[in-house]
Each structure stands twice: as C-alpha cells, then as structure tokens.
Computed example of a mutant assay.
Amino acid sequence: MSATLDAAEPFSHPALFYRGAEEYLAGTVPFVEEGLRAGQPVAVAVPGPRLELLRAELGASAGSVRLIDMTVAGRNPGRIIPGVLRAFADSHRDADHVRIIGEPIWAGRSATEYPACAQHEALINLAFTGRPVTILCPYDAIELDPRVLEDAALTHPTVIDNAKSTVSTAYDPGSVIQAYNVPLPRPGPDARHHVILDFDVDNLVQARQVAADIAVRAGLGTAAVGDLEIAVNELAANSVRHGGGRGTLEVWVDTALVCQISDAGRLTDPLAGREPVGLSGNGGRGLLMVNHIADLLRTHTGPDGTTIQARFSL
C-alpha cells in the first residue's frame, strides 16, 4: 500500500515498516508509479542494494526517477535535509507536489550515528511543514532494533505496516529531538593523539594547525586534511562569534578522527546547519558547510553551552 496525501496539510511524512523485499517493493513501487502518472517529480534516496532492487522493478520508469544512494549522500544524517531532500524539492518548486522516498536508517548504522539519524527524522517535520511534498521513509522491521521502530512512530504522523496505513498516536517529534540531545561520546581508553586547546580570536590559526597535524599523523589524505581544516575553522569561528568569544578544541583518533569544539553559547535553532542558506542569508553557512564536509556531526546544547563533534572517517 502506498502513502496517501493529507488534504489538510500539503506535507506528508509516513513511515513504511517492511519485512523483506516483497513488502519493500509493495510499499514503494506504487508510490513511485502514482507520482509519475500524476506528473510529479520523484526521487528515491535509499541504500545501494535497495536502490538496485527498485531500479530493476521499475524498469524503464526508473529513468524518470532521481536515484540516490543514501549510504553515500546521507552518510552524515545532517546533510540529508539540505543536500538530498531540500535540494530535490527546491529544484521543483513549480510542481504541484513532489514525492521522495528517503531511507536514512539501515542495519549498518552505528550506535554513534543513530542519534543523529533519529533527530534528522524528527527535523524533517519542521523543515517541510507547509510544503507540497511527501517523504516516505522505509524501515526494515526485521533487521532494525525495536527502539528504532518506536522512534519512527514518534517522528512520523502516519505509519504503514502490513499494508495498512494508520495515524501514529505516539507522534511527538520534539520529544525525539530532546531525547537525543545528550552529552557526546568521550575518548575511550584506546584513543590516540588526544589534544586539548583553548582558543579565541587570536589563535584560530593554531587550532586549525593542531587538527591538521593530527589528521596527517592519522593518515588522512591531503584533500581530507584540507576539508578538516575548513570544518575546524568554521566551528571555531562560530564559537568566537556566538559562543562568548572563546572555546575549547579537542581532537583525538579512535575509529575515526574526532574534532570537538565546546563553548558557552546555546544553539536554539534545531535546524541550524540543516537548511540551505542563500547568498543573501545572514549566517548559518558555517555549520551547513561542516555538515557537508564531515562524515558525522553531532551536537549537544544546553544551559551550560554547546558541544559540536565532527567525525571524519580514516
């Protein structure tokens, strides 16, 4: 059964619980085909194996669909809204309605990544309210942890399960945003190259250099080191501008290279860094840029300040 559109609210965000390839195709292919018959732009952003499954089932119709491997485009959940969902929807603003299948959570997601994934699903509802868009989110009900399905009921107003669409009485995306606003992972006993540096406007160059030196020692390539320097510069500059004029940089290496910046500011916009910023915008580009650069970005904010952790694959 495919998702239906809510006439009262142009934006629709159903979750599709599936068990195996047959249910996956039964829930997604009609959704795509209905959109194509109606002349609506359709995009599919799902993990590679599911993408190929859909491509084969759609046949010649696949050529009319924007196909995106979510394991690449959405490796960092923080870039999915601006770089995948909004990028496609905004390119079709003249359409009566836009359809997207987005599967940001799959069995290979790590426990470190998952909180950012859950928050992403909650934030979609803020980013698209009032837009004539439907985003259908498949969830593997066999492979995923039951807690993931419970969170899906909190972040999606409608749940499709066993070919039946029902209103989610648990729907409360704000609770998910808060539930995963938790202190970020600290360096473990096996962490290497752990460095702490307090910075202000006078030693931003030193902060970049410290991070770059560790990145080189960890084996990152030249291009990746350059990206990391940009990310550290943007985060540190944000601390100077908005976090009380100073902050603390920590860098370490475990399963990834981690750059963490803490300051006394409080991040009040949950969509910060997740929405496209126009050339005439008055800020917000720095965090958006870091989301596009980093392999994972997580944030913890509260009355005592904000900590942002950017992870880069080795």
Rank of each mutant, 00 (worst) to 15 (best):
E9G: 02
I100T: 09
T155Q: 12
V46K: 01
V46L: 04
G108A: 08
E34Q: 15
P157N: 03
D198R: 12
T222M: 15
L287F: 11
R19W: 10
P189G: 15
H300F: 15
A141Y: 01
A26V: 05
G281M: 11
E234Q: 07
G302V: 14
D6K: 02
I135A: 05
G59S: 08
E57L: 03
E103C: 05
L53Y: 04
V32E: 02
A43W: 03
E22K: 11
W106C: 01
T158N: 04
L53I: 09
L197G: 06
A170G: 04
L279A: 15
I214S: 08
A218M: 10
A153Q: 06
V29K: 01
N291F: 11
L53C: 08
D96T: 14
V84M: 11
S239K: 00
P189A: 14
R311A: 13
I101T: 10
G245T: 01
I230L: 12
A111P: 05
V225M: 13
G78S: 11
R298H: 11
T134A: 12
L53P: 03
G174D: 15
V44S: 03
V44G: 02
R37K: 14
T112A: 15
P303G: 11
L16D: 01
A207K: 00
S239M: 00
Y180F: 15
L53N: 04
A236V: 00
D263I: 00
V225G: 10
D198K: 11
G130N: 11
R93Q: 13
H13M: 08
L53Q: 09
E275A: 14
G174M: 11
A45W: 02
E234P: 01
I177Q: 05
A60W: 03
V216T: 15
V46T: 09
A73F: 05
L126S: 11
A43E: 07
N291E: 13
V133T: 06
R99F: 06
A170T: 03
M70F: 07
S110Y: 10
H300S: 13
F17Q: 00
R93T: 12
W252H: 10
L136Y: 03
V167Q: 08
P132A: 14
D94M: 09
L314W: 06
L197S: 06
A224P: 02
A3Y: 03
N238K: 00
T255A: 13
P104N: 07
H97A: 12
L126G: 07
S262C: 02
Y114H: 11
M289H: 12
D172M: 08
A38F: 05
D295Q: 07
T134N: 07
I135F: 06
L58T: 02
L25E: 04
R50H: 08
G273P: 10
P185R: 14
A56P: 05
N125P: 10
H156Y: 11
L149N: 01
A224I: 04
